[in-house]
Write a protein that binds this DNA or RNA. Sequence first.
DNA 1: TTCTCATATTGACGATTCGCGATACGACGA
DNA 2: TCGTCGTATCGCGAATCGTCAATATGAGAA
Lengths: 108, 108
Amino acid sequence: MGYDHAVFSEEQLLSVFRALSNPVRRQMLMWLKDPMSFPGQKAEDVEIGVCVTDIQRRMGLGQSTTSQYLTMLRQAGLVVATRRGKWTYYRRDEANIARLLETLRDVF
Amino acid sequence: MGYDHAVFSEEQLLSVFRALSNPVRRQMLMWLKDPMSFPGQKAEDVEIGVCVTDIQRRMGLGQSTTSQYLTMLRQAGLVVATRRGKWTYYRRDEANIARLLETLRDVF
DNA sequence: TTCTCATATTGACGATTCGCGATACGACGA
DNA sequence: TCGTCGTATCGCGAATCGTCAATATGAGAA
């Protein structure tokens, strides 16, 4: 069973486009396609994602900016956060991104 | 012959997402799907688009804001402008929008 | 408990955007 | 040539964004 005609609210779409209207955040999302490409990433964590510090180092942003950007991407439904111990791992929400692309085809 | 693997530059993508990260501009683009739904639209102009004044009235925006928003949508490649006499008609650039959706599928 | 580390939140400030009114431009009609 | 009308551009204040340093929170380690 799939999603029957993905529905995104106006506000959800707004948060998505706002999140993507920043090149740094778009690159974050791209790089998260390949978690192992982050220096420091351990093979056994690939499923759960990449931790904030590793993302920060690679993006060359401040720690707070990195955290904020990831929060925006999460609120837009583009990534998922998982807390494990003192680390928060972020990974792409592929299912929701696919749903979003379906919606965009209808909407535009 | 079609487009062989649509390519949008980073800057083009940026202008697209910025243009779409505003609900009013997104609604403009939606409403332009059906030019005849604009009060004042003449059947013989459907092909060329809708003039700024008609769009303005429907959106309830100021004239200058309407013009600016349409310029943004045009620079993003989402609409096409045609000047005829003292009017400027805007219509969706369906081919480019389709190309864009293809690109998004690859990019995200 | 207390210290440390990873992350989140807050506060600040320049840069950009939002939407407007005023004004300029360009194409008609008189 | 003068008005007039449709559109574009300029200049503005208010709001939001981009990014940071500082601080708060929360979970292990000692």
